[in-house]
Amino acid sequence: MAIKFEQVNFEYPSFDGYNFSALKDINLEIAEKGEFITLIGETGSGKSTLVQHMNALIRPTTGSVTIYGIKIEKDTKKKGKVKLNPLRQRVGLVFQFPEYQLFEETVLKDIIFGPKNFGVKESVAIERAKQVIKHVGLDEEYLKRSPFNLSGGEKKRVSIAGILAMEPDILVLDEPTSGLDPKGRDDLLKLFMGIHNDLNKTVIIITHDMNTVYKYASRVLVMNEGHLVYDGLPQELFSKENIKSWNLDIPDIITITRQLEDKLDVNFDRQPHTIQDLFELVKEVI
């Protein structure tokens, strides 16, 4: 296991003494390879707090998170024995709106900033930049440009390239497609799928878009009021009764299938995955 949560609780401290409990008794294992995970749940359910534990940006109030064999607990840092930098290199975390974090004069300098920080030689980092810029679907020529003259989508790609250049084993992205139109969203998701398939990395994505979950995820985690309430296949999630109480949407394809079953007074023998599947089913009944 690359990452293991054991009975993790986390409280945000507050001045008035009533600490806010953001994570409650989380037990969870993430494999190093082969997983495409979506993490969902309404705003404030603990999703971002959870992923920030995955590279020890924050430490549990009680319980432990073991990342590549290194156990992180409340007082881990105070003991001073554990070096956190290697962990942060292995688990790459892309925050929401990463494009706001670009700051260098050129795209190249921005991309090599991370690896250099982790002790990679400049010449090696530059070679990596030339590779990763292609992985995110941009031309090598972009390396010379200023990040500030790029479009929003291009900036997002550059910031993801910066994380990829650190060669993390696991890539975690906090709402990477928020605010994008359907085409921009699909382009980015295909990019993450490519990273997952070609580079054989585990990818974890926080999202509110259930169509994304249904279409891409091999595993889905649901957070609700600090609890991990579901860990399993997306297909099974959307047939569960509790889904309404977790304030989650239903993917469009499932909604329309149910509505059609209702109005046509039929029961399809399987849940279609795409509109083409549904077309095949409807064909049989009209």
């Binding site: 309404e42 705003t43 928020s178 605010g179 509110h208 259930m210 304030n247 989650l248 949407d249």
Partner: peptide, 8 residues
């Protein structure tokens, strides 16, 4: 509404 969760 494009940056909000379903409830929002």
């Amino acid at each position: 509404t494009s940056m909000l969760d379903p409830k929002g």
